[in-house]
Simulated scan of single mutants.
Amino acid sequence: MNVLLDNFGLFGRAFLNTIELFVISAIGSLIGGMLLAGMRVSPVPVLRSFGAFYVNTVRNTPLTLVFFFFAFAYPRLEILDLSFFTRACAALVVYTSAFVCEVVRSGINTVPVGQAEASRALGFTFPQTLGSIILPQAVRSVIPPLTSIEIALLKNTTIAAGFSVAEAGSLYQTLSERGYNVLVGLIWVAIGFVILVIPLTAYQQRLERRWSVTR
């Protein structure tokens, strides 16, 4: 307990930065995943091909390799001078969007084809049909796997520690320098992640009850 109390400020900053990293990455990956899902079911062949290429490439690439690119290769491109935190968010969004895309696409496939045909008969464009009719139903049917992906995203933020993000790396080093048991510190970090995951799971169950889809 002394490890936590004596270093509460250090743990608190790392905890809050982890939440910030997760929230930004979760919102970005949801938006990116839905855009990719729209491309995967688009009537435009080029968009379908791009969506399929992106998803197949990213899903078969280790997340650590994506982090290495944004941490070390991206600065050499000299495009924009971004902080480690911003690049970590970008890495998580790029990686997680591919998984969100496939979950949303599976939900789109559960929506009866007749609804899309009816919307086209009424003069709706493809974006209007997708955004107003298909996606709202598709997202409701995939709440459990979508929440599981976001929980996995939360746990994936730990990889950012190796790139000086969320202060997790400095947390371990500081505990060691101050003579505290690092293993005990890691246990408190694990408890912190459990505290973050429990509300997500509860929110998932609430949405399932509220948006349950009758088959």
Rank of each mutant, 00 (worst) to 15 (best):
V41E: 04
N60E: 09
Y74I: 07
V55Y: 04
V197W: 05
Q173K: 14
F67P: 07
R13E: 15
L16T: 09
S176C: 00
P136C: 11
I27C: 12
I108P: 00
P45Q: 02
L135C: 01
F193C: 08
P199G: 11
I108N: 00
I143T: 05
V111Y: 08
P127R: 02
V66G: 03
F53V: 10
V111S: 10
N60C: 08
F85K: 05
T125R: 13
A190C: 12
T214R: 14
T157V: 06
E167I: 00
G12P: 00
S170P: 00
Y74T: 10
T64Y: 12
E150T: 03
F67S: 05
A160F: 02
E20I: 13
V182Q: 10
I24H: 01
V100R: 00
A118S: 13
Q173T: 15
P62C: 10
E78C: 00
E167L: 12
A116V: 08
G28C: 06
A52K: 11
I134E: 03
V23T: 12
P144D: 10
V55C: 02
R206C: 06
W188N: 05
V182I: 15
V189D: 08
F72C: 09
V103N: 14
L183H: 06
L35P: 02
N56Q: 12
A160L: 01
V23H: 05
S132P: 00
G131F: 11
G179P: 08
L4P: 08
L146Y: 12
F11S: 07
S49D: 09
I31D: 12
F50M: 14
F8T: 04
L196S: 08
F67Q: 06
R105Y: 09
Q204F: 01
R48Q: 14
G33S: 11
L200C: 09
F124Q: 03
N156M: 04
S170G: 00
V3Q: 06
L154E: 07
A52G: 01
R59L: 11
R76E: 15
L200I: 06
T174N: 13
S170T: 15
A37G: 07
L200P: 06
V111G: 08
E117Y: 03
V103L: 11
V46D: 00
S132D: 09
F84K: 13
L196T: 10
N56T: 08
S83T: 15
Q128C: 01
A71K: 01
A190S: 14
S25T: 02
S132K: 13
L80I: 12
I133Q: 03
Y203A: 15
S106T: 07
C101E: 15
E78K: 14
F50L: 15
F15W: 10
S83V: 07
